[in-house]
Design a protein around this nucleic acid. Structure first.
Lengths: 140, 140
DNA sequence: CAGCATCCCCAAGGATACTG
DNA sequence: CAGTATCCTTGGGGATGCTG
């Protein structure tokens, strides 16, 4: 069960260490900044929806991310635009027609996140198990 | 420059779609939950530090994550423990001696995040460029 | 040393109503 | 349809002091 014949963990973490050293001060904040934005409740869904559909209008996004308010949707979109992850195209028509799409950077983010996603999915059960185990400890 | 001979984006995103469908309701929250915890300012640093060092005491972590308060450190540790990402081992000595280490799940998370990290690092420049471009647009 | 208790601040997130 | 403005709640995060 223990993986010492493959170079997985130790090596990869060592690489992580090197990587983190590489982006010392300012860049380190960047990492957390990316995470923070990704953790922004809606940003993820937006990026994912755009990744799947290519281009979506404001209202389309609002429908896909059911539960989001216009305020938060607009906010998140602005944030993502500012981060260079999506592009906003205003057709300047009446009635208004604005659509959003991922940039190359945004696509890169989505791709970079895939391994994490698949990992989360694969380990969803483990998460719940851990959670329950902990709660059980509490009770016991 | 455009990659249409390799199956990268479309296929991977399609996989992402399938994956997201797979974990419909409750599991979807799990994803964001993971992200949220990862975005918790200190959790990342803790997981990474433990990944590098293997086992660390409370004060050790406090030193590595300079800027963290005991309160937040303890909080984050409890959270991570609850999520099954780290284990807490209290030696029950005087003076107190408690150390923390990653669980298998925690190591998995770290591994799952590596691609994202390396991507962020590789694209740090692009991020700043986007940011500056946007600010420039504002000014212009 | 480990960590709990208390008090405080503020930004994320939401509900609602309004506009071009 | 796309978006802004206003008001409110919540919880993350921090500072400080105390205990076993």
């Amino acid at each position: 069960m223990i993986l010492n014949n493959e170079p997985s963990f130790a090596e990869v973490i060592a690489g992580s260490q090197a990587a983190c050293d590489a982006l010392s001060d300012e860049d380190d904040g960047l990492k957390r900044e990316v995470l923070a934005h990704a953790g922004n409740r809606w940003s993820l869904g937006i990026v994912h929806a755009l990744g799947v559909s290519g281009t979506l209008r404001h209202a389309d996004l609002g429908r896909r991310l059911e539960g989001v308010t216009q305020r938060m949707l607009t906010r998140s979109l602005r944030q993502l635009e500012r981060d260079g992850l999506i592009v906003r195209h205003d057709h300047r028509e009446m009635p208004p027609r604005v659509d959003y799409a991922l940039t190359e950077l945004g696509r890169g983010l989505l791709l970079g996140m895939m391994p994490l996603w698949t990992w989360v999915i694969d380990n969803a059960a483990s998460f719940r198990a851990a959670r329950n185990r902990f709660d059980g400890d509490d009770a016991a």
